[in-house]
Simulated scan of single mutants.
Amino acid sequence: MFELRSWQAKAGFIALLLLIAFFLFFPVYWALSSAFKGNGELYQLEPTMFPSDFYLGHFLTAISEGNLLLQLKNSLLTSTSSALLNAALASLAGYSFAKFEYPAKKPLMLLILSAQMFPFGVLLISIYPMLQAVNLLDTKLGLTISYIVFALPVSTYMMYSYFKQLPNELIEAAKVDGASNIKIFYRIVMPISFPAFITVTLYAFMWSWNDLLYSMTLITSEENRTVGPGLLLRYINENNSDWGGAMAASFLAAAPVVFVFALLQKQFIGGVTSGAVK
């Protein structure tokens, strides 16, 4: 066990934590401070730590001008849909690997995990012509399907590890009572595994929400564009860079993600025992 007995060790440990916190949170503070600064103060030669006058124009402009609200809607739709679909597929695959025996199970598991070894840009080279062949380019459905590539291998392994720890006696008792495999999965296994399901859902949602490469390549129309490319193309381009507007729009774009994590944080502390007792 790591113990801090002397006051010098405690002081050094606290200083290290403060240094790490500075590198983590100061960029966030600087971005938020810049969002409340007017352009005159933002671009002056001597930067200020605090806004001299809280300017809300960047936030008002981000909402009233451009397509930020439409882009947020598109991002929420594609990210939520892909996250739920990814979690459902990962749960089925993970349960199959954990509780069933069939030929080539281990090579198939390694094959799924090997997809995570390739850069996403390489996978995009294969995904693009596939979506083009079925007329799903520049559609929210095509983007949703492509997002599954991000998180499915890791999500499958996470669900496999969770299902592997479930007692087989629960499943055997249900089979004795005459329950089918499908009924066992949906009525017994999934209620117990709900915390793991929420975890992989949030993991996939985070990957999809933060995506820039796929959404810029597969989406070309303004009505289907998500928030990442929307912010980049509007605020940072070859003609100008509106840093104040970019910071304000970024915080508005981050608000739904923060809300989702705050809403579902209790699911992370749910245990297998409480689910089994219920």
Score class of each variant (00 low, 15 high):
6 S>Q: 01
229 P>D: 07
218 L>M: 05
251 F>D: 09
202 L>T: 02
19 L>T: 11
252 L>D: 01
12 G>V: 00
98 A>D: 06
143 L>C: 13
80 T>D: 04
208 S>T: 14
200 V>C: 09
223 E>T: 09
164 K>W: 08
29 Y>W: 12
5 R>K: 12
235 Y>L: 03
40 G>H: 02
213 L>S: 09
56 L>D: 08
175 K>T: 11
109 M>A: 08
68 L>Q: 10
79 S>D: 10
110 L>G: 13
211 D>M: 08
153 P>C: 07
21 A>P: 03
252 L>Q: 05
95 Y>T: 09
158 M>N: 11
84 L>Y: 01
226 T>F: 01
81 S>M: 10
188 I>Q: 00
26 F>W: 08
189 V>C: 11
131 L>M: 14
140 K>G: 03
42 L>P: 03
77 L>T: 05
67 N>Q: 15
254 A>P: 02
179 A>V: 15
210 N>S: 05
157 Y>V: 01
53 D>L: 14
267 Q>K: 08
182 I>A: 13
262 A>V: 14
175 K>Y: 14
272 V>C: 10
128 Y>C: 00
248 A>L: 02
101 E>Q: 15
229 P>L: 13
226 T>S: 10
24 L>T: 10
116 Q>D: 12
80 T>A: 00
237 N>R: 09
116 Q>P: 00
127 I>C: 06
116 Q>A: 15
259 F>Y: 13
204 A>C: 13
74 N>P: 12
261 F>L: 04
106 K>D: 13
32 L>Q: 09
193 S>A: 12
13 F>A: 13
183 K>M: 05
141 L>G: 06
193 S>N: 05
99 K>F: 05
175 K>L: 12
134 V>A: 13
100 F>S: 11
249 A>T: 07
268 F>C: 09
184 I>H: 00
13 F>I: 06
150 F>M: 04
186 Y>P: 02
40 G>L: 14
100 F>Q: 15
